[in-house]
């Protein structure tokens, strides 16, 4: 139980990162690769949030009187993750538009078959 308490979020974050990297390394379909990228992104975001967590902390919002500032979680990682999520969706949109164009040119999304240029 103690192990779970300490490591479960890290396991989740790095599990996502590793599964995403595995997709990126082994799969060849462009849309699959893009899904892998978005999974890696989610994992990294979870990791960053974990870095600022305080046990039994509260959200960093003074919505009512009497909240103790000492038990608030670190707000900086949350601000970073907001940025990172938006960057992720921007990259994803670009990648999907490239995939659509690629499909129109080649009729396939398999990167093994798309070898007009040498790597």
């Amino acid at each position: 139980m103690d192990f779970l308490n300490n490591y479960i979020f890290y396991i989740g974050a790095f599990g996502l990162i590793f599964i995403g990297l595995y997709i990126l390394l082994t799969r060849k379909n462009l849309i699959k690769l893009i899904i892998g990228l978005s999974i890696v992104d989610t994992g990294v975001n979870l990791l960053i949030i974990c870095m600022g967590y305080l046990k039994n902390g509260t959200a960093p919002i003074f919505s009512r009187k009497g909240l103790n500032p000492e038990t608030m979680v670190d707000p900086t990682p949350q601000a970073l993750v907001l940025t990172s999520i938006v960057i992720g969706v921007a990259v994803l949109a670009m990648a999907l538009s490239l995939a659509i164009r690629l499909y129109q040119h080649y009729g396939t999304l398999d990167m093994r078959k798309i070898k007009e240029q040498k790597w």
């Binding site: 949030i49 960093p60 979680v73 949350q78 999520i85 938006v86 992720g88």
Partner: peptide, 14 residues
């Protein structure tokens, strides 16, 4: 993890 802002962003965007 006490990050409601991020939760909202992840749910609506992600």
């Amino acid at each position: 993890l006490q990050a409601p802002d991020v939760a909202m962003a992840e749910a609506s965007i992600g």
